[in-house]
Computed example of a mutant assay.
Amino acid sequence: MLDGRYQSVLEAGNRAVFTSELEHFTKAMGFDNFSAMTVVDHSLGRSDFINVDNCPSGFRAATDSPQLAQRDPVMQHCKRQSVPIVWDQQTYVRSNAAELWEAQARFGYRTGIALALHLPEGRHFVLGMERSAALPSNTTELTRLVADLQLFAVHAADSALRVLLPPDQQIDRPHLTPRELEALRWTMDGKTAWEVGTILSISERTAVLHLSNAMRKLNCNNKHQAVLKAMRLGLIR
């Protein structure tokens, strides 16, 4: 079974629930604010941006502009790379953008962690957590925070694409048979093919066949990817 934090955001059914799950995770991680952005690239260089955050009043008006984003070292890092960035005042000073840090620091954005997932079909998901208190000086503790954010972002990205994008930009949902869905549900609970067969009163070979068919229809290389994709598409819960 997935950790409850990741399971909850993966099962978010609408924007309000999705936003609530992001905020709950942010607070549990010891941060004050979060910002999430889903980007869909189109032809001719046009992109759609969908933002979800819990920014304090006045923050957007003071910091949100294309010109500032082009100079923001955190945004530029996320635009080009998939590895997380741990940032603080010195990150901005080194990029000759100290005034940008000062502008956001007034709202409590003094340090944080951010990352971007660059997905197929011109889709991107950027997630950051920010706070006013310094990040842990202990390397092990900081690494744990980064790893937790990375894993959470993978699940949050799946939900963002499902609940935030308009219908015409949604990924088509393949048709799976009831048996294939049952096999995936039990696999989600950690059952082996032999156990799935026993539960469904079918042979292990037949259980493997159902899982293989589900993987093929979902265009996945293994059963774990198939489970995650089926959950993202809302085929199983």
Rank of each mutant, 00 (worst) to 15 (best):
L2R: 04
G4T: 09
R15F: 06
L22N: 03
H24S: 10
D41A: 15
D41C: 15
L44N: 09
D48T: 13
N51W: 10
C55Y: 07
P56C: 11
F59E: 04
A62Q: 11
T63K: 07
S65T: 14
Q67F: 10
D72E: 04
Q81A: 12
Q81Y: 15
S82C: 09
V86P: 00
V86S: 09
Q89F: 11
T91L: 05
R94H: 12
N96S: 06
A97I: 02
E99I: 04
L100I: 06
T111P: 01
L119E: 05
P120M: 14
G122M: 09
R123G: 03
S132N: 13
A134V: 13
P136R: 08
S137K: 13
T139E: 13
T140V: 15
A147L: 07
Q150R: 15
H155T: 10
H155C: 14
A156R: 01
D158Q: 14
R162N: 08
L164W: 04
L164S: 02
L165N: 03
P166Q: 08
H175P: 00
H175V: 14
L176R: 04
L176D: 05
L181R: 08
L181W: 03
E182T: 14
D189S: 15
E195H: 14
E195I: 10
V196M: 06
I202Q: 04
E204Y: 11
A207T: 06
H210W: 14
H210M: 12
H210V: 07
S212C: 09
M215Y: 00
R216C: 03
K217D: 06
L218T: 03
N219D: 11
N221W: 11
N222Y: 08
L228G: 02
R237H: 14
